[in-house]
Design a protein around this nucleic acid. Sequence first.
DNA 1: AAAACTATCAACCGCTCCGGG
DNA 2: ACCCGGAGCGGTTGATAGTTT
Length: 332
Amino acid sequence: MRKPDQSERDKGCNNNMVSKGIMPMKTRKGLWSPEEDEKLMNYMLRNGHGCWTDIARNAGLQRCGKSCRLRWINYLRPDLKRGAFSPQEQDLIIHLHSVLGNRWSQIAARLPGRTDNEIKNFWNSTIKKRLRTNKNNVSTISQNDSIRDITGEVSMSMSIHDHEIMNNCMDSSLTSSTTTSSSVHNNSMFMNGHEQFGHLPPLVLDETISHTNIGGSSFLNNISSCLEQGGYGDDVVELPYMFGMENDITNPELGNRVIEDNGYNGATFDHHELDNKTTHHVNHHFNEGSDGNIKVEEVVGFGNHWPGESFRIGEWDLEGFFANVSSTPYLF
DNA sequence: AAAACTATCAACCGCTCCGGG
DNA sequence: ACCCGGAGCGGTTGATAGTTT
């Protein structure tokens, strides 16, 4: 972690001003102190969003707006979910990354309570490493169980069964777990009304499939098992051409989801940082005092759980989501 | 016990995009 | 059409905690 420092100039935030010969106000850089958190939290809860530069100034912070925005989004937002990623979330991240690539903000948009930074960090540390390790363990992939592009190169170690699921899910005209049979798919099938990508090779399946189960999450399970068994590698997981999602990545189920609010009622709520590995947690307790100001207290505790479970804003029922996955056909 | 190594993640940086003038 | 400033994004850095040697 970076030490809080008193930089003479916030290079990143004040580039424009400096280039114009305007001497910017001194801004702090580095880690945020609890006092700064408190100020920003107070201001945001009272006034809500606005121009970040104004927020920084009006909240009495010697920070640039950019820094305030980042702090709020990544740390102070009341709807943030903390703690380790669940296996379901991990599956979802892996899948979404295979679809969206490094578009962390778009991935984060589908994981309520998670930030792009968090997901990016998680991917770059944990998953990337895991994939790299597992990749080395991969020896052969059955041709019959793989998907090949037009050149015959094995491009993804997803089972035909799961690929079929995805194909069918791409087709919004399919509303139930129907039986389909096809040996060749071209891009138009995947695009299905969305803008098509121009020069992408069609996918070729090796054999006819006659079974699918849209409602299941076997695709995700398969990703999990591939991950564990070493089926995915950096160079085989990308499937950017399968979806016409560039212009349509809004998932009504997720995007409009009402976040459960079990704790924050405007008076008091907790913000937990949880480290499952060490069972140590730092609990930032935000409490509204008699003066109406939000106080930030740091409480250190132990135990691999959410103390009191009082602050579960953003707690997201992934199980329920996956159970209803058939209603979100263009996500899977 | 200490040094070296590794993992994690908060925060910075530079860039692009977009809306307003 | 152009300029400007703010917002947002993705890549990267670096401090610190944890683990291994």
